[in-house]
Amino acid sequence: MGSVGEQVGSAGLIELYRCMVRIRSFEEHAHKTFLKGGMPGFLHLYSGEEAIAAGVMDVLAPDDYIVTSHRGHGHLLARGGDPKRMFAELYGRVDGYCRGKGGSMHIADMGHGMLGANGIVGAAVNIGTGAAFACKYRGDRRVSVAFFGDGSTNRGTFHEALNLAAIWELPAIYILENNHYGVANPQSDHTKLKDLADRAAAYGFPGVVVDGNDVLAVRAAAAEAVERARQGGGPTLIEAKTWRHWGHFIGDSAKYRDPVEHQSWLDRDPIPAFGKVLVAKGVATEAELQAIGEEVEAEMDAAIEYGRQSPFPDVSELTMDVYVGDPQGTSAGGRS
């Protein structure tokens, strides 16, 4: 772990910690509720990967763009998303970010420049690249960050997006969350590469490997990439190596993973690891960290209850927002 406190400061370090704890707590609240049969659809949990979202989001400006995959709760939360509206969306309720139409896999919050989670693996890579193009086209010094998994890099769309970003020198940052599996397919079966960051060489821009369970290492790599992008230096691919604590989605027992390897990653859980650093450096006491945990627990208890209490959308919403406005001759309309 790098030079603690040097760039971030005590308050900032504690915020990074809190951010990770909030994501974990959000995910585990959703997990418990889902297992009890209380939530519809599929949930892909981010537990174990929190250091990536927390580290990257900490170096972005409020008007930058992000876009993510099916595993996107952590990104929105770290970006400032409201857990109440997020839980409402997971429940399919009208107070959700997408009025219940998207659910977990399509959660989106334009208010935070969050261009959506996505049900199509790899879709975020081109969407993020397009937002980066818009930033460059307007010359407004914003950047765009796309989050996606190791498995996504085997799609053709990944290649096309990164090549375009390279030749157009776009302010794009690609955060490759390598949790070593695409569903049950291990990295060793889906690619011959050891480091997926090596793929950047094919496009002629930097590819960096970081420990995705070390929030400060992620933050430092992201800070450098974002700075380069803002200065017109073009894209960066950051491979953050990590591990999901649970199966691919809730219900997948992940028996395909080696229990010893699984345990070794659990032992490197990013949250307690960072907590230890904070205590060792005198940034926080055990008791203070514990208090954060309790505060966050209470916050998420209330947030999930808000989601549960939110009403379902009226059935009239089924045909609303198919189009912008109400184009003549369509049976499905927009909002008047």
């Binding site: 519809p40 659809g41 997408c98 139409k101 379902f312």
Partner: peptide, 15 residues
């Protein structure tokens, strides 16, 4: 109906 398939169980049932 001429819509994408919505997530919310209330709307999906209607679809």
């Amino acid at each position: 109906p001429d819509t994408p398939v919505p997530f919310s169980p209330a709307l999906e049932a209607e679809f």
